[in-house]
Design a protein around this nucleic acid. Structure first.
Length: 411
RNA sequence: CGGAGCGUGGUGUAACGGCUAACAUUCCUGUUUUGGGAACAGGCGACUCCGGGUUCGAAUCCCGGCGCUCCGACCA
């Protein structure tokens, strides 16, 4: 797209009411807009990144056999009373509202209840299982304190997948596949090196759950990392028993700050029991479905990338989730020759399906370069009088800073 | 929810209880300029978060709200 048409502007200064690096950079570069504490709108550049992240996740969920659906935000009180989670004493971060006739509704903070309830209508036989469904949905959580920019908001997008299986074995197999899928996702998104599969509290149906923790001081969790084994233990569950289970030694672990970018969790029969989600097995017996839940917050992932991969000049997006592949910058001359060439190149690349942000603005080079560094598109291509002399363009890698002159036809 | 700090043009800041609320930046007009946020000239833009109070006089002091940030608590 032509940058002259992009309605957002970059800023030199971050707003003073944002301290977190992710919010400062994303706001300065025009990716997000703060509506109120913990509530951010996504602007065109930010939405592009968000959609890229969503697509990486979606591909992996589909590869796991996931079927995408879209549940509602408005939640029926009765459904939640079935599991006992309507009560504010049990769940303290509900947003609740009312219909005109005074009946109460909630805004979903997760979706185990409505989905389990929905499934009772479709699951009958062992032949109907296993089933894996997922969605990208806005979650609402009335956090006592929002913080860290888009890392912990009151309204945020979440990918949540739920597994419905027949046996513990079937569940465990899928759980492992899902874990691997998550590892793939964070690798593709560019957080692989810094993201650790972390053992965390498992609840009543399994000993452990697994969190995907990305190392950053901006995180709010403390984890103990075993760098050799590439695993970690959440501080909350660190004890001798866990160390023995995992075969790691306390003195080989290093405590680090991290942010939880995903987690996977065995639910056992907690919800299927509450909703009587049963199937008939081969022998004609009714059995409870075994469930699991698997979450990733794309917004939090975006914030984490902004925290972890940025530098003092601005954002640095990995190619897989960058808003555009190429930032084309023209440094114009007097006779309009550069502009004509830049226009041509832009059209050519765009026709090939390459995503290009074309800085065609009537601005000085310094401003264009500064904006380009701030926005953080992986490859910057400069076309100017100078490059035209050698019939080439200059390509610069945002992450490494490597500059290369490329002959025009090679582009 | 407990504690701390802060609310002044779009943004970042300044202003002793006293003149028309100042500066920078952004934005608009024009001239000029074009490889790292150029220069010059002119211009737009603020009931100083809201409501009370003290005072001859409040951005400034007091009280009450609301909002934002940070620390803690919380956090499938």
């Amino acid at each position: 797209m032509r940058q002259s048409l992009l309605f957002t502007k970059t800023r030199k200064d971050a707003p003073k009411d944002e301290v977190s690096r992710n919010a400062q950079l994303l706001i300065r570069a025009g990716f997000i807009h703060k509506e109120m504490a913990g509530v951010y709108s996504y602007l065109p550049l930010g939405l592009r990144v968000m959609n890229k992240i969503v697509q990486v996740i979606r591909d992996e969920m589909n590869a796991l056999g996931g079927q995408e659906l879209f549940l509602t935000s408005l939640q029926d009180k009765k459904v939640w009373e079935t599991s006992g989670r309507w009560d504010d004493a049990v769940v303290d971060n509900w947003f609740k509202t009312k219909l005109k006739n005074d009946s109460e509704l909630g805004l979903g903070f997760t979706h185990e209840e409505p989905l389990t309830n929905l499934m009772t209508e479709y699951l009958r036989s062992f032949r109907d299982l296993p089933v894996f469904v997922y969605q990208f949905q806005t979650k609402f959580r009335n956090e006592a304190r929002a913080k860290s920019g888009i890392m912990r908001g009151r309204e945020f997008l979440m990918k949540d997948l739920y597994s419905f299986t027949r046996t513990e074995k079937e569940h465990a197999d899928f759980y492992e596949k899902a874990k691997q899928g998550y590892i793939n996702i964070f690798k593709k998104i560019g957080l692989g090196d810094k993201t650790y599969v972390t053992f965390a509290s498992g609840g009543s149906f399994s000993k452990y759950s697994h969190e995907f923790q990305t190392l950053t001081d901006a995180g709010e969790d403390s984890i103990f990392v075993d760098e050799k084994k590439k695993i970690a233990i959440n501080k909350e569950v660190l004890n001798d028993e866990v160390l023995a289970d995992l075969g790691v030694k306390r003195d080989e672990l290093v405590e680090k700050k991290a942010v939880e970018v995903g987690n996977i969790f065995s639910l056992g029969t907690k919800f299927s029991d509450a909703f009587e989600l049963k199937y008939v097995d081969e022998k004609g017996e009714k059995k409870l479905v075994i469930m699991g839940s698997y979450g990733i917050g794309p917004g939090r992932v975006m914030g984490t990338v902004a925290e972890v991969l940025s530098d003092d000049k601005g954002l640095v997006w990995p190619a897989s989730i960058a808003p555009f592949a190429i930032h084309l910058i023209s440094i114009e001359d007097k006779n309009g020759k550069v502009k004509a060439e830049a226009d041509k190149l832009y059209e050519r690349l765009t026709k090939k399906g390459i995503e290009v942000l074309y800085d065609d603005r009537d601005a000085r080079p310094g401003e264009k370069f500064a904006d380009s560094d701030l926005i953080g598109i992986p490859t910057r291509i400069v076309i100017s009088e100078k490059t035209l002399e050698s019939d080439s363009v200059e390509a610069k890698d945002r992450m490494t800073g490597t500059v290369e002159m490329k002959k025009h036809e090679r582009i």
